[in-house]
Design a protein around this nucleic acid. Structure first.
Length: 210
DNA sequence: GTCGCGATTTGCT
DNA sequence: GCAAATCGCGACA
């Protein structure tokens, strides 16, 4: 896996709104292997990660928060594609999604696991680290938000397509072949448990449930 | 106003 | 393997 050139990455345009307006399942699949970066302050270097596990949720899907329409919590899901949807689960963990349906329609991709690629305080990298001993715990939707400092108060409804957004999704230039992608049912839900809408990178040790 | 529960994680048995 | 932690949201009165 090639490491990104950080100064160049900071000048890379994020995926645009048209990318996130594609069908949700397609976006969930296409985001595997791409970069997710967070830059809390434009004066400081970002934390860069590689997306290794996602799940798709659509408006006509009983497991999706948009299923019952634009309720107060789900309002951001009906916003423009590329918006961040961050919500609190079990009273203590946040989960990060990107909205992937045209404005007025509800749908999103949930980020379930990221592979740490660059952190300014760990310039030696994460190549040889196992998730359990990593200073950045990014395997699991709640853990990755905690590790990157993502909260509903700070990041919900942020436009991730904006070039200066603190949260950005960037093309890595790598497209994963189908043989490197695993597809299973989604984790932790009680409705629509048979939908094969979870995507992850085969044999990647950062995946939440192999 | 009250009540049940969740797209999770952690710690203990 | 199982239960606790912890609180906003959504359903219903």
């Amino acid at each position: 896996m090639h490491l990104p050139d950080i100064p160049r990455l900071l000048d890379t345009p994020p995926f645009d709104r048209a990318f996130f307006a594609q069908p949700t399942l397609q976006v969930a699949r296409a985001l595997l292997g791409q970069w997710l970066m967070i830059q809390h302050d434009s004066d400081h270097p970002p934390i860069v990660t590689r997306i290794v596990e996602t799940e798709a949720y659509t408006q006509d899907d009983p497991a999706c928060h948009a299923f019952k329409g634009p309720t107060p919590r789900a309002k951001s899901l009906f916003g423009p594609p590329g918006l961040a949807y961050v919500y609190l689960i079990y009273g203590m963990y946040h989960c990060l999604n990107v909205v992937t349906a045209p404005t007025g329609e509800g749908g999103a991709v949930l980020f379930r696991a990221l592979e740490p690629v660059f952190h300014p305080q760990h310039p030696t990298g994460f190549e040889t680290l196992k998730p359990a001993q990593s200073p950045l715990q990014t395997h699991g939707p709640g853990r990755l938000c905690k590790a990157l400092g993502i909260t509903k108060a700070l990041h919900n409804e942020l436009d991730m397509t904006h070039p200066q957004s603190p949260l950005r999704l960037l093309p890595s230039g790598n497209h994963l072949p189908d043989k490197a992608v695993m597809i299973t049912t989604r984790i932790g839900i009680s409705k629509a448990t048979d939908y094969p809408w979870r995507f992850y990178v085969k044999d990647n040790r950062w995946v939440s449930v192999p």
